[in-house]
Design a protein around this nucleic acid. Structure first.
Lengths: 145, 145
DNA sequence: CTATCACCTTCGTGTTACACGAAGTCAATC
DNA sequence: GATTGACTTCGTGTAACACGAAGGTGATAG
């Protein structure tokens, strides 16, 4: 059995967030002891992981609550839950692509700056190498006097 | 030259966000015509792409503003800009890993539900397969009566 | 000339998901 | 018995827009 602090440490959430989620009813398995202190078992910790995952893929707290309630309703809601998770899996895939592009973008930018610092290129041409994927992106200097 | 609406369409931002960013001074190259209407050239569109990238990697508006100001100051700020972009590149890499894990997590969950729907497994054991990476994760049923 | 679009503007409040601090409780410890 | 430390509830603060209202343009249509 874990306290709020421990649960936060284990899941990488803040204590505030952990309390917030439990108060919203997102962790059905959480218990209270005689002093009204929240106690998290492994199941509750798993719920917290799941909530974190769904939230990071863009699901709203309200919708997470709906999902949790569906889980509590039992087997009859499996089709709905399946559809929901499938939808968010697709979103997660899109986000994965976007994350890749951001890495590529920032790598290009750092390489550009590094080249300047190593005097491999003469001047600060196009300091913001933004939009590298766009056909019509400018290649000339960005800050004209 | 593009209007706010066009800029929004081109960058995937909302019109609100585009106006918000320009009003905060994040798009130095944006101009106004005689009717006080914002006009975006290709350079401004590139800035919007860059702002979007930095924001999605977690940079606060305030810090993006700082970065933009550094760019405007000229070559002398290249070392600072390099350090900043390097830092956010690292963050983007971490986010990429997290995104991969979320996809894996949601794929496992959907597979689980699909198996139930196809009667390949008898009952709704462990409906929330959260925390699959954790050594101590429970494998038994989650919702005990 | 007027009216209707289709934009744009500024202004101001609403929203989400917490963050944070205050003030209090409670068990254990020095 | 006073302090410590972790917990509680309560209540306001915040970031980054979202959204709607109210109104100003300029072009086109009748």
């Amino acid at each position: 059995m874990h306290t709020v602090k421990e649960a936060a440490l284990m899941t990488g959430l803040t204590e505030h967030a952990v309390r917030f989620y439990t108060d919203k009813g997102l962790v059905p398995s959480v218990q209270r002891n005689k002093n009204n202190i929240r106690l998290f078992d492994e199941e509750s910790i798993n719920w917290l992981y799941g909530i974190k995952c769904l939230k990071q893929t863009g699901m709203q707290i309200e919708n997470i609550k709906t999902y949790v309630d569906l889980c509590l309703e039992g087997d009859s809601t499996v089709p709905q839950r399946f559809a929901l998770m499938k939808e968010y899996k697709e979103m997660a895939l899109v986000q994965l692509e976007e994350a890749k592009q951001r890495v590529a973008h920032l790598e290009e930018t750092t390489h550009h700056y590094q080249a300047i610092l190593e005097n491999r290129i003469p001047d600060t041409t196009n300091p913001n190498k933004w939009g590298i994927d766009r056909k019509d992106a400018r290649s000339g200097p960005v800050f004209r006097k």
